[in-house]
Amino acid sequence: MNRTLAIAALVLGALAAIGGSPYRAQHANVDAARLARAIAHEDDHVTALELAEWIRDRKPRLRIIDLRSEREFATYHLPRAERVPIEAIPSTPFARDETLVLISDGGAHAAQAWVLLQSLGYRDVYFLRGGLGEWLDDVMSPAKPSDLTRYFGGVPRATGDEAAYGGGTSAAVKAMRRRGC
C-alpha cells in the first residue's frame, strides 16, 4: 500500500465527513430581493408572441417545459414542448446554459415552478404569463392574423373557429381557450 496515497485518501475522506452535501439542489437558496426585482421588472415571463418568435427563430438552447397533465398535453401542446410534471421539476436536471420556458394552463403553476427553478440556481427561466390560453388566443387564432399565426398553422378568428388550430380536434382545444366565442 502506497503510504502517501493512503494518507491523501484518508485526509480527503475525513474532510468529506464534515464537508457537507455535494448535491446542488440541497443548497437551494432564495435571494428574495433579487426575485422581487425580476418580477417588478417583468424579467420573469415571456408573452406568447415573444415565445412564438423564439420558436420560429430556432433560439439556441431553448427548452419549452409543459407542466400540464398528460391528457392535456396529448390534446394540444406547443411545437418542441416537453412535458415535465411540476413535482418532477426539482429533480429534473436542466443544463445551466439552457433557456427554460414554463407553460401551464393559466400561468399560476408555471410562475410557481419559476420560483422553484430560481431557488435551485437556474437563471435563464421564464414562464408564459397567460398560460396556454394566451398562446391559443394571441398566436394560433388572433383577431388580426400575423406571420406567426401562419407559421404555426393557426387560423385567424375572423375566418371561423371551426377551422382554427388546423381543424382536427379543435373542439377539445377550443375548451382550453380563455375567451370563448
Binding site: 485518501a9 484518508l10 468529506a16 465527513a17 455535494p22
Partner: peptide
Amino acid sequence: PYGVVVCAIVAIALAVFR
C-alpha cells in the same frame, strides 16, 4: 450524510488493504 459514507468507505478500504 453523503460525506460520512465517503469517509466510512475510505476507512473500510484502507483497513481491508492492510
